[in-house]
Amino acid sequence: MRDMRKVLFSTSLYLIGGIIGILLLESYYQVVEIELPYHELNERVGKKMIPSRRINYFKEGFYLGASNEYGYLGNPYPPVRNNDKIRIALLGDSYVEGLHVFEDHHFSKILEKMLNEDKLIPEYEILNFGMGNYHYNDMVILYKNFVEEFNPDILILIVSVRDFMFRDDLFVPSPVLMMDNDSLVIDYSFTSGRTYQLYKRLSFFFENSCMIKALNNAYKMTKRAEFMQILFDKFYRSGQNENELQNPTHERIDLDIRVFKSIDWFRDRKVFFVFKEGGSPELMHELDDSGVITFSIESVLISEFIDKGIHHEYWDVTNTGGHWNHAAQKVVGEYLYRLIKQYEE
């Protein structure tokens, strides 16, 4: 009995030590900004940025900034418009989110600066709704349930061919576009799933604790091929390293009916689909015919970088491939500027 008590006492002390350790570490993480959480799992749009959050992100590049009070990146333009300025909303994945360069070096800021240059009162507002791991499905739902409130004049969706492939195996629980007879609807059944329910119960920790974010990221990492590489180093050879510079897919894919139906939701705006890579002419024609304007930035990036023997996704600091580097951000910003000016005329 005495031994039992002793074991219980020691275990309690161990746990107390552990809890105090975790609290101290959490404070340290918060102050020095390691693994700051800035996403929430929203029941209307899935993964979304939490408003007014510090963001500090390192991968191939480095970002230190914050989401604005409305829950997107860039200057905080409110949903209600009380001016005649032209409002441009950017939608896309991590390339648009741009958490690998400082905001001032991101193409959205370069574009905004160029558009408002030499103007006493700025005429354009750029709202960056980019979000890592977003596909076309997520962009449409974000537009419908969030971006539309901001009433943008122009929508620019920066996409790749892969974004149009609808997935069944969603890593992050999210709403999905579905056909109900002949009309397009959003299915929110993910909210009744176990993952979302668990998230709901522990949302305070998921949205505020750096340690929980680190734990969650590590858990996600264990499901990826990279994990085996981290664990076994030279003893493990995977087929493809995520950070290697990849060639874009130019494969021809059949567009899902949901893509055409969703385009109807954008009808009263000017919409540009800018392909960051790939985008076969047939696919682009199909989209053009359905009422959007398509472009591919790939040829510009190839002539500006690849043809000169450099890669626009190479990061010298970390010696890895990744998203558009600083030089590419400038080229993309200038390209979008020309595009907008061309259509204004």
Binding site: Y14, G17, G18, I20, G21, M211, A214, T222
Partner: peptide, 25 residues
């Protein structure tokens, strides 16, 4: 004074290192 308490602290330090090593190169 308490070894158990000390091990609790050390374990969390080790845990944070392991998490970081999984998450970054």
């Amino acid at each position: 004074k308490s070894r158990s308490f000390m091990f609790g602290l050390i374990s969390t330090m080790f845990l944070s290192v392991v998490l970081f090593l999984i998450n970054s190169k």
